[in-house]
């Protein structure tokens, strides 16, 4: 499948989401089979700065190593990383993450745009960006940056999203490569 070839070109797969995307991830994560050839990075808008339980929740759904990012952690293929609450997550050229507590972007910190744009800068075409359900326009500019850099862009089908606004905005602004339901995403990622 063409999709397969494209995702497997990626050294990093980014998943961004807001309201309604935790459920999607709980379905998506168990379907990923180790070893992954890419690093999977998840950026979600979160309600509270103190909820560290999200990483625990996700860890139950996968046998792959999963961690909430700390500053300057190394980015390794086969690992799953979760952006911490209340920091923007950035990608450095030396293959590490860095964090930044500057102003919110799109009313959000972490902002999906910030991570997507920063990753596009470093990974160029070796990058896949996936945008899920949400009530915010965050992520659209980030997907555009990934597209400009030659990476692959995927948006959750708005009909399958709990909140359709975020994927709709992205489809309107980006012309993503694929618009998929959860099953479609699973088969593309495998």
């Amino acid at each position: 499948m063409a999709e397969n070839r494209l995702v497997s070109n990626s050294a990093m797969v980014l998943i961004g989401g807001s309201t309604g995307s935790i459920d999607v991830l709980l379905n998506l994560l168990p379907a990923l089979r180790p070893p992954l050839t890419f690093a999977l990075v998840i950026v979600l808008h979160r309600k509270s700065a103190t909820d560290t339980s999200l990483a625990d929740l996700f860890a139950l759904k996968t046998s792959l190593p999963l961690q909430e990012v700390e500053d300057k952690d190394a980015i390794l293929p086969g690992h799953i990383y979760l952006a911490p609450a209340d920091y923007h997550l950035l990608i450095e050229h030396d293959g590490t993450f860095s964090l930044d507590d500057s102003e919110k972007v799109n009313y959000s910190r972490p902002s999906i745009d910030v991570t997507f744009e920063s990753a596009a800068d470093v990974y160029g075409s070796a990058l896949t960006g996936i945008l899920l359900s949400g009530a915010n326009a965050d992520g659209s500019a980030g997907l555009q940056a990934i597209k400009r850099a030659g990476g692959l862009t995927i948006v959750q089908h708005p009909d399958t999203a709990q909140v359709a606004y975020m994927p709709q905005q992205a489809i309107l602004n980006t012309k993503p490569d694929y618009v998929l339901d959860v099953e479609g995403m699973v088969s593309v990622l495998r």
Partner: peptide, 9 residues
């Protein structure tokens, strides 16, 4: 300084 962040600034 961390490049990605300073570049954004």
């Amino acid at each position: 300084y961390a490049r990605a962040s300073i570049k954004r600034r």
